[in-house]
Amino acid sequence: MADRGHDHVHASPVDEDSPHSYHQTLEVAVRELLIEKGVIDADEVRAAVEEMDARTPARGARVVARAWTDPDFRARLLADAPAACRELDIDVSPAQLTVTENTEDVHNVIVCTLCSCYPRPLLGLPPSWYKSASYRSRAVREPRAVLQEFGLDLPETVAVRVHDSTADLRYIVLPQRPEGTDTFSEDDLAALVTRDCLIGVAVPRVTRTVAEPASP
């Protein structure tokens, strides 16, 4: 093997500064080999990271806001989420996206007990708590306690429906449109839909702006 003069290990700009774990080291080694052998190039890696970072929960919020304002779109979204997202120029492939709708009687929560399957095309990278052993085990075993710790206290009259993303489907929650939003534009509505609402550990709320007292 040719000596490339690498007498020291230097971090690539796409790597984190912190010391690498076993699996990060493995990923770096495989990536460097693939680049060295010409299978992929560094620009492709950079572009893939850029594309991943460009996905944010704002995409999911756009889909929800459209569903709230257009009942026909909502019906299409529930029937075939990937096709409905394509109408908004959002490509959710290869995820088999499935939308679970909250109602007066049902609240949905998403988890992946086996690893960290997450609707990345619509929400971007999962928060670290979504990947924690605590969330993954407790969300299925005691979902109401977990929701309470997130500040969501649901009455017994609302059924909690947990969805474990064990195989090929990915889920987002379609929350209920909050009261008092009749005059909201689609963009205003989208701003109410946070990442956690789309995972199902929170519900959208209209934050009331408290009027500033008039200055004397």
Binding site: V140, P143, E156, A159, V162, H163, S165, A167, L169
Partner: peptide, 22 residues
């Protein structure tokens, strides 16, 4: 049904868990 999955489940009797299975 959650109460079928966990014998000590604390929650409403309508609570469910959906799992994808081959």
């Amino acid at each position: 049904s959650q109460s079928d999955v966990w014998s000590d489940y604390k929650g409403a009797s309508d609570d469910t868990i959906d799992v994808e299975i081959y």
